[in-house]
Amino acid sequence: MCIIRFEHVVKILGGKEILKDFNLSIREGEFLTVIGRSGCGKTTMLKLINGLLLPDQGDIFVEETNLKETDMIALRRRMGYVIQNKGLFPHMTVEKNITYVPVISGKKNKEENHKLALKLLKLVGLDEEMAKRYPEELSGGQQQRVGIARALAADPRILLMDEPFGALDEITRQTMQDEILKLQRKLKLTVVFITHDIREAMKLGDRILVMDEGKTLQLDIPENIRLHPINDFVKELVKSV
C-alpha cells in the first residue's frame, strides 16, 4: 500500500522553482533514503509531506488523504520529525522534551507521560536516569537518541528524518544507523531519511531516491543504483561505495 504520494508537484520558493513536476510514491513500511546535492529539493520535499510547506501546483496524499483537505496540525502530530541539530528545548528536561507532543495534544496525565518517557528512553537505548537531565548534559549521540524518542512519542506511522546523523562522529553515526534500522523494523515505520552520504543511503534504504534540480534522477533498490547508475551524476555519486 502507498502511504505517501506526490502527483505533479511544483514548489516555488523565493521566486525559484525548487520542485519541478515532482512525482513519488512511498510504500507503507518502507525505508526510503533521499540523496542529492545541496539545493536539489530534498528538505523541501520532506517539509511538504508534513504540511510545513504547501505545493504551488499538484497534489500530495498522506494515508490516502489529500493534504489540501486535512487538518495540518493533527497531521504533524501523527508524524515524527527528526533533524540534524536534534531540535530539543534546552530549558526542558529530557522527559519533558520527549512528552512535549503528547502534552500539547491533550494528554496531561503526568504518571502516564512519565511511563511513556521511560519506555521510549529504553527503546532508543538510553538509561531511565537520563529523564531528569537537560540536553546540554548529554553527548551528541545521546541528544540524537532523545530527538528520536520525542519523534516516536506520538506513536507515528511515518518518521521523517533530515540528515539526523550528519553532525555525529563516525563511530556514533554507525551505531545510530544500526539503531534506527532496528527501530524501523520493530515498529514497522515508514521512514523518509535525507542524507548527503551515499554509504549511509545504501546501508539504510530499501530504496534510494537520487534527486537533482528538483526532479527524480533515479529511484531504485541500492544494488541497482550501484550497478546501473542512470547517468554520470549518479555514477560519480556511487563511485566511493
Results as ranks from 00 to 15, higher is better:
Pro55Ile: 05
Pro90Glu: 04
Thr216Arg: 11
Met45Arg: 10
Leu120Glu: 07
Tyr134Asn: 01
Ala154Arg: 12
Tyr100Glu: 02
Arg150Gly: 08
Lys16Gly: 03
Asp220Glu: 10
Lys115Gly: 06
Thr93Glu: 04
Gly41Asp: 14
Phe193Asn: 13
Glu170Leu: 13
Ile73Cys: 08
Leu181Cys: 02
Val124Gly: 05
Glu17Ser: 02
Ile73Leu: 13
Leu126Cys: 07
Leu160Lys: 05
Leu227Trp: 06
Gln184Asn: 07
Glu111Gly: 12
Phe31Lys: 11
Val238Cys: 07
Thr65Glu: 12
Glu112Ile: 03
Ile225Lys: 10
Val210Leu: 02
Gly80Leu: 06
Val82Met: 01
Thr70Cys: 12
Arg77Ala: 13
Asp206Gly: 09
Met72His: 02
Lys110Asp: 04
Ile148Met: 06
Thr65His: 14
Asn66Trp: 10
Glu28Phe: 09
Leu152Lys: 08
Glu64Tyr: 15
Leu48Val: 00
Glu236Tyr: 13
Gln84Val: 01
Ala151Thr: 13
Asn224Glu: 11
Arg150His: 01
Val241Trp: 13
Asn113Pro: 01
Asn97Gln: 10
Leu48Ser: 09
Thr93Met: 08
Ala154Gln: 05
Ile49Cys: 04
Thr93Gln: 02
Met1Ala: 02
Leu209Trp: 08
Ala149Ser: 04
Glu69Ile: 11
Met211Lys: 06
Gly14Cys: 02
Glu63Trp: 10
Gly80Phe: 04
Gly14Thr: 09
Asp169Met: 11
Val94Glu: 06
Leu13Val: 15
Glu236Pro: 00
Met211Ser: 09
Thr44Ile: 04
Ala74Ser: 14
Lys47Gly: 05
Leu138Cys: 10
Ala201Asn: 12
Ser105Ala: 15
Val103Lys: 13
Lys119Asp: 11
Leu237His: 03
Glu95Asn: 06
Thr33Ala: 10
Glu69Tyr: 15
Thr216Leu: 03
Gln184Arg: 15
Ile230Phe: 03
Glu137Gly: 15
Lys68Ala: 13
Ile171Val: 05
Leu75His: 04
Val94Gly: 07
Glu17Val: 12
Gln184Asp: 00
Gly125Glu: 05
Lys16His: 02
Arg133Tyr: 14
Leu46Ile: 15
Gly140Pro: 09
Lys132Glu: 04
Gly29Met: 06
Lys96Cys: 11
Ile148His: 00
Thr175Leu: 01
Leu189Trp: 02
Asn231Leu: 12
Lys86Ile: 15
Thr93Cys: 13
Gly36Asp: 09
Glu137Arg: 10
Tyr81Trp: 09
Arg173Asp: 02
Val62Arg: 15
Ile98Thr: 05
Gly39Leu: 06
Arg133Trp: 06
Glu200Leu: 11
Arg133Val: 01
Asp212Thr: 01
Ile83Met: 11
Gly36Ile: 05
Leu88Met: 05
Ala74Arg: 02
Ile18Pro: 01
Ile26Arg: 02
Glu129Val: 11
Val94Thr: 09
Lys203Phe: 07
Val234Leu: 01
